[in-house]
Design a protein around this nucleic acid. Structure first.
Length: 338
RNA sequence: GGGUCUAUAGUUCAAUGGCAGAAUUUUGGUCUCCAAAACCAAAGAUCGAGGUUCGAAUCCUCGUGGACCCG
C-alpha cells in the first residue's frame, strides 16, 4: 500500500477489516487461547499449522477435538467446529500427499475473505511461521504441485549441479537460495521447470497490509500476539503434553495411520517425514528404538522445534508478546475500538 | 583374592610416537511453498601421578573407575 492509498483511506474514512494473529512456540497454549478469544470477540479461527491440515493427524498434531454436535449458532458448511467455534484449514488434505504452502495460502485466503464478509473477527492461530506470513503478507506463489518422479531424478544430482541448473533457469531465485540445501534447490527447480519463468516478485503491497484475492485488493489492520514462555516453563509444558498424548492413544493413532481399517496406509518414510511424534512413534513401532528412546527423542526434538519457531518469530518486531490471558484481552479490546 | 581387556567433547566412535577429527547433543542463526522439514555457524575432550622420548592420546610403572573370566 502506497502513501497515496494511505491518505485516500484516511480521507474516505473507510473502516478496514481487522485480523488477529495468535502465535507462539509449540505447547505454549495457542489453540485454547484462540478459542477463548473467539468466543469473547465473535471470531472464527484459521489454523496455521503444517500438520493439522492433514486428516487423521489428531493427537500427535495437537488438533482441537471436533464437536460431536455441530453448533447451531454459527452455520458455515464443511467446517470443523470446536466449542462452537468454526476452525478453518483443519482436515483439508490427505496425509498421503505432500501439502504445500501454496495450497495452504489459497485455501486460507478464501476462508479469510469469507470470515470478513460475515463481519466476524478472523483469528489466525498457529506455529508455522511460514504459513502465517504467506497468508498475511500475500507471498506470490505459483501453484506447482510436487512431482515425485522429477524429484527422484533431481535427487541423483549433487547440490552443485542443482545450483548451476537453477542459476540458468531462475537467476533471481539462485541469488537468495542456500546452495547447500538440496531439498530447497530441488523444490526451486521443480517450480522453475514447471512454470518456465522466474519466480514472481514479492508483492510489496502485502508488507503494508494488503491482500490481493481474485484480483481484488483488500486492506486490513493486523494485530499479532505472541505467547511468551520461559525455556523452563516451555520444557515442562512439552513434557506434560507428551504424557497426555500417550494417555490419549498417540501410539494407536500412528498404528492406525500405518494400517487403517479400510484402504491403504502411510508408508514408513512418509510417517518419518511428518516429524516429531509421527517420526519417533513409527520408529518405535518398527522396533528401531525402545519406548524410552522414543519419549526422549520426541522431547528433545520438540524443544529444538520450539527454538526454531522462536528464531523465526524473533525477526518480526511487530509481534506483541503477552504473558497471560488478561493482557491479551486488554490489547485486543483497544485494537478493536480504534 | 588371581587374571584379561579398557578409559579421548555431555554421548557414541576416530587418530604409524609427529597439527586430537567426525557424528550427535548444546547454543546461535538462515528462509517466498516438502517448513514439526531442510540447511549454516560456533562452542566443547585425551581419567590422575610419574617415567621413556627432540616429541606421548599412543610406549612403560603405579593409582583410580568400568567390563569380563577364574576361584
Amino acid at each position: 500500500m502506497t502513501n497515496l492509498l494511505k491518505k485516500l483511506r484516511k480521507k474516505l474514512k473507510i473502516k478496514l477489516p481487522k485480523i488477529l494473529v495468535i502465535l507462539g512456540p509449540t505447547a505454549s497454549g495457542k489453540s485454547e487461547l484462540a478459542v477463548k478469544i473467539a468466543r469473547k470477540f465473535n471470531g472464527e479461527i484459521i489454523s496455521a499449522d503444517s500438520r493439522q491440515v492433514y486428516k487423521g493427524l489428531n493427537i500427535g498434531s495437537g488438533k482441537v477435538p471436533k464437536d460431536k454436535v455441530p453448533s447451531v449458532r454459527c452455520k458455515v458448511s464443511g467446517v470443523y467446529y470446536y466449542k462452537g467455534i468454526p476452525h478453518h484449514l483443519l482436515d483439508v488434505a490427505s496425509p498421503k500427499r505432500t501439502f504445500t504452502v501454496s495450497q495452504y495460502q489459497k485455501l486460507a485466503k478464501k476462508a479469510l475473505a469469507d470470515i470478513i464478509k460475515r463481519n466476524k473477527l478472523p483469528i489466525i492461530c498457529g506455529g508455522t511461521g511460514l504459513y502465517i506470513d504467506a497468508l498475511i503478507y500475500d507471498y506470490q506463489l505459483p501453484a506447482v504441485p510436487p512431482q515425485p518422479k522429477l524429484r527422484k531424478q533431481l535427487e541423483k544430482k549433487t547440490t552443485e549441479e542443482l545450483f548451476k541448473q537453477l542459476q540458468k533457469l531462475d537467476p533471481r531465485r539462485a541469488e537468495n537460495i542456500d546452495h547447500h540445501n538440496k531439498r530447497r534447490l530441488i523444490r526451486a527447480l521443480e517450480i522453475a521447470l514447471t512454470t518456465k519463468k522466474p519466480i514472481p516478485f514479492l508483492n510489496t503491497a502485502a508488507r503494508d497490509n494488503a491482500i490481493i484475492d481474485d484480483s481484488k485488493i483488500f486492506l486490513y489492520y493486523a494485530l499479532k500476539l505472541g505467547i511468551k514462555k520461559s525455556p523452563e516453563e516451555l520444557k515442562k509444558l512439552i513434557a506434560a503434553r507428551l504424557k497426555k498424548r500417550l494417555r490419549q492413544g498417540l501410539i494407536g493413532e500412528v498404528k492406525n495411520l500405518r494400517n487403517p481399517p479400510v484402504g491403504g496406509g502411510l508408508n514408513w518414510k512418509r510417517l518419518d517425514d511428518l516429524g516429531l511424534e509421527y517420526r519417533y512413534v513409527s520408529r518405535y513401532l518398527r522396533g528401531l528404538i525402545t519406548k524410552q528412546e522414543m519419549v526422549d527423542s520426541i522431547l528433545k526434538e520438540s524443544w529444538q522445534y520450539a527454538k526454531r519457531q522462536m528464531t523465526w518469530f524473533k525477526k518480526d518486531k511487530n509481534i506483541r508478546w503477552i504473558e497471560n490471558e488478561k493482557e491479551a484481552y486488554e490489547i485486543i479490546k483497544k485494537f478493536l475500538l480504534n
